[in-house]
Amino acid sequence: MANDILVFGEVRGGVLKKMTKELIGAARLLAGAGGGSVDALVIGAGAGAAAEGVRNFGLRKITVADDEPLHSYSTEGYAKVLADVVTRDKPSYVLLGATAMGRDLGPRVAARIDGVMFSDCVDVRVDGGQCVARRPVYSGKVYVELVRAGERPNVITVRPNNMPPAVATGGSTPVVAHSSGVTREMVRALVAGIIPLEGGRPDVTEADVIVSGGRAMKDKANFKMLEELADLLGGAVGASRAAVDSGFAPHPIQVGQTGKIVNPKLYVACGISGAIQHLAGMRTSKVIVAINKDPNAPIFERATYGIVGDLFEVVPLLTEELKKVL
């Protein structure tokens, strides 16, 4: 059975999210066996230029919708475009990134097309012609695998940094312009502006490296030390809830159950005990380094590498040693 797949290419600030290649990789897996085709849909200001970045990925076609009412994100405007394209092309599966936009849009589209919704998946594969999706539940304490029951179109959001990105295969995919028919009047909730987070570092949900500090940081000023290490590695700074509640760090960088769920290649936990709610946010990191003065801190049970020591001593040394080799 052939599965046609639609990939939603998210554009932020005129740039196609890097996650799109991971979605194309996942889509190829799902389409692969049965000979289905993979399409992409790119919406928003600069969508045409952004789509150029994936024209050599062996897609069947790329639909681009960039009319003016779509220049600012709106759930309703974007949901209409997605739903219309799904109705036109009838894909079996629709893949979006589990980003702020994808998580907002996915369920709305699924409802509009009377489909099925799987959120926040960490893996997809094909079994018997069906997509089997894996997702964490209970804050990642257990996992489930699920399949759709029946033939309704299935919207799936996939977490960043989980599926291997597709590599270019050459060729030049045709781009189809889509006139959305969305008007300002149709949109009842509209993004009127974006307030950027100070710091200019990547967001914790998108960073490959995160250096996090806990209560042991003692003071806001001490986070400088972590910023220096993070900047060296092109990463982001994170924090435990205790650090956020103590006013050392802002909530947008809190990692954990009531913060962000992150999945970097490298997570460095400095003076973080490893409470279950913190682990809920970072335990799927590929490599976890724990620096803690208590050898019995629970964080060591989940860590890949551990150093027992005073972070105020170890972190600056680590930065120095890294500078020597990078």
Binding site: G115, V116, M117, F118, V132, G140, K141, V142, Y143, V144, E145, L146, V147, R148, A149, G150, R152, R283, A290, F300, E301, R302, A303, T304, Y305, G306, I307, V308
Partner: peptide
């Protein structure tokens, strides 16, 4: 409405590979 999806498997978090202490 009927159930639109079906859970085929529940499983625990894979055990971590164990920590290497750097001493």
């Amino acid at each position: 409405g009927e159930a639109r999806s079906r859970i085929t498997r529940w499983f625990p978090l894979p055990k971590s590979g164990g920590v290497k202490m750097v001493q």
